[in-house]
């Protein structure tokens, strides 16, 4: 049985949690103060995910902020960055617009977050 300490990143509290893991399964969790912490710990053990935020350059050279609509697998972050960096969308993209659907088959879209 393994005990793993982790800092929750779901909110600014950053609870220091301890998970008891056996055979790759989380048996129990201590230190979280809410359900989201439990969710985070579970994901960290099985398939760590992260919200990806970055920028994209438009055709005309404008810089727009973008994010993944849902958290994406941590190990795919750099691959997804490559996809976003290769984009040159038109200058008239708007707040909330989807630039890539289901990026790298993760189920997450890449959406514009700046005005």
């Amino acid at each position: 049985m393994e005990e793993r300490k982790m800092t929750c990143i779901m909110c600014p509290r950053g609870c220091l949690m301890t998970a008891k893991i056996e055979n790759g399964e989380m048996l129990s969790l201590e230190g979280n103060t809410c359900k989201r912490g439990y969710e985070y710990a579970y994901n960290e053990i099985h398939h760590p995910v992260r919200t990806l935020t970055t920028t994209v350059r438009t055709e005309g050279g404008r810089i727009a902020a973008v994010k993944s609509s849902v958290p994406v697998p941590k190990k795919l972050q750099f691959e997804i960055m490559k996809q976003i960096n290769a984009l040159r969308p038109s200058d008239d993209i708007v707040f909330g617009q989807t630039l890539i659907q289901n990026v790298c088959s993760t189920g997450s879209d890449i959406i514009v977050t700046s005005d």
């Binding site: 909110c11 919200t51 935020t53 902020a65 977050t113 005005d115």
Partner: peptide
């Protein structure tokens, strides 16, 4: 405008927003 990362708004709006999204609500 330049804080394009998320982590804003959880307390205020109940959801994790990026800086520009937080600004967008007020603007």
């Amino acid at each position: 405008k330049q804080c394009i990362h998320s982590g804003f708004g959880l307390h205020r709006f109940g959801e994790e927003l990026t800086g520009p999204e937080y600004a967008h609500i007020y603007i």
